[in-house]
Write a protein that binds this DNA or RNA. Structure first.
Lengths: 217, 217
DNA sequence: TAGATTGTTAATCGATTAACAATC
DNA sequence: TAGATTGTTAATCGATTAACAATC
């Protein structure tokens, strides 16, 4: 298997930072810069050059002393690590305000994510198009999921119906769920779930703010 | 200082999990359950009982062998840890589709977050109300920020203007920024920034999916 | 009492950081 | 060449997990 080195284990913190590096690198590329040092990346992202180099090691890209790393090369390598080089077709379930915001966010195309279909149960929006994506009834999901090569579903339904909808997604053959509902989904082991928990992030913010206010009071 | 024990350092992973525990506990409370064991919590959240107990230690709540922990007591203690017991008044900058989704999400009230004002530069929406919150011109921000006791700003503007708007927020006296724009903001050290990076989360998802597909192919 | 569950210490694990030789 | 930057090993740090006595 030729490409097997792409499938070594990369620590999750590294994966997250690689996504950040990619943002910066795309920005540098736009400005016509094609060499970058670990120090430059570290300064911009408020981290450490050693960590940047360690992270980059996982991409198999090597730099040149005194020169740094090749920007286009690094972009390509990171995109490959994250599987963003190929388009990730996806569908979205739950066309509420958050669902609409996600469908309409052009930024996801940079991450190789492309929405094919959307699903809901509200008769008022079924059959309409949101940002060019047609909204189908949830019941049509099983038939339409098979169109997708890589079966990614984005879940933006209210917490109350999240588990029920998840079960339907799993049954329809979905392999990965990007979950925006504020609860832990129950799924078979071979289905990947990645949560966006706004509350976790807000908790960190408010806790830090209290500590800051305490220290400066 | 009586309350100083509330300001011990709590590891960030613990803070994030406490937010998850709180979700579950509120759910249990709704169902009239008022005692819970670390095992029950761990099972529901797919984690380890020992870790749950360790996390709970930071809240100063003690349990009873054979019985577990008192649900209302634990809820109160976690809310205090996260500073969610008091209302966190906040304002939002950037009333695009994501901004609207956040303003309209009732769930944030459970986290003590309440939006007071919103800001934008689009004349079409300035003066209008979104979910009961009035949208002002960005220039009015400095005067209105002073109304807030704890100065939290939620940033949902496009990446291109994010740094510029951040500078204005800092100048207006904001102490904490919840950043939804996909870049690292530059701020003074005493301003807290917490990022929601959708791309980081998606990176983890697509990477895991590739590994799974590789293993099962 | 017996058994389940807590609280806490010690061991393990993994990620970050420091140090420094190799390289351009 | 001198100096900056990479690549990599070793040390440190902190979080998770295991073990088990104390308690109800």
């Amino acid at each position: 298997m030729k490409a097997s080195h792409h499938f070594q284990i990369i620590p999750e913190p590294t994966i997250r930072r690689l996504a950040d590096y990619l943002h910066l690198l795309l920005h540098l590329q736009q400005e016509g810069i094609d060499k970058v040092s670990s120090t430059t990346i570290a300064n911009d992202l408020n981290t450490d050059p050693t960590q940047v180099r360690k992270d980059i090691q996982y991409t198999s890209i090597v730099g040149k002393p005194k020169t740094g790393f090749d920007v286009p090369g690094l972009i390509g390598a990171i995109e490959e690590c994250l599987s963003w080089n190929d388009t990730n077709a996806a569908f979205l379930v739950g066309v509420g305000s958050l669902g609409k915001a996600i469908l309409g966010y052009e930024g996801f195309q940079k991450y190789g994510l492309q929405f094919i279909d959307a699903f809901d149960v509200d008769p008022d929006i079924i059959g309409k198009k949101m940002y060019g994506i047609e909204v189908h009834h949830l019941d049509e999901m099983p038939g339409l999921v098979n169109k997708l090569k890589r079966k990614i579903g984005v879940l933006t339904v209210p917490a109350e119906s999240a588990q029920e909808v998840t079960d339907k997604m799993v049954e329809a053959g979905i392999r990965a769920i990007w979950n925006f509902a504020p609860l832990q989904l129950k799924t078979p082991e071979d289905v990947i779930v990645e949560n966006i928990q706004f509350s976790q992030s807000l908790a960190v913010l408010t806790r830090k703010l209290s500590l800051l206010e305490f220290r400066t009071s």
